[in-house]
Amino acid sequence: MLDAQTLSMIGKGIIETLYMVIVSTVCAYAIGLPIGLILVITDKNGIRPCPIISKVLGFIVNLLRSVPFVILMISVTPLTRKIVGTTLGTSATIVPLVIASAPYIARLVESSIKEVDAGIIEAARAMGTGTFKLIYKVLIPEAKPSLIIGGAIAITTILGYSAMSGFIGGGGLGDIAVRYGYYRSETEILLVTVAVLIIIVQGFQELGMRLAKHCDKRS
């Protein structure tokens, strides 16, 4: 059953999955990180309180987070077609993945940044630190270990989403699991893809935890 052809198909699936997940995570962070920072800073107890921005942004984030991924995936197809030109394949899947995970990342970033000791922020402000420098010289470096753990959590969640996209022809391991495991009942291939997914998730998780521990100078 697991002949060379199947193996190469699974190999291709792994590469597709990693491509989807990594590109989506990077793009989602590019959007989610600034949103998370804005949420913290404009909060009523933040450095530059601005209730309107924080409430509107918070509402949009909650709205997007409450739409189940399967539904979101289908409902953004017009947008996907506009951006990628097609609704099928790995590149097309990146669009819903980013839209679904960016708000999630924003919340993760928000909670990581909020962990930074208020006293440290106060000391930095007392030394004449402006908002921008406070963000990239204090908030992000001080929250780095927590941000890395958040990143590991985000990447595994995105991996889960990416597998779901197999149902609408998204490519990658999820696609293989759906086509062979579900429609053709080829249990063996299903099990192999599941095993590979578990290994990838564990790998990311372990990597994230080790990296976070390595760069945390608090202990």
Partner: peptide, 12 residues
């Protein structure tokens, strides 16, 4: 300059 009870050094 300012110093604090809890020192407030940058831990990283």
């Amino acid at each position: 300059g300012m110093i604090f009870q809890q020192f407030n050094l940058l831990m990283q």
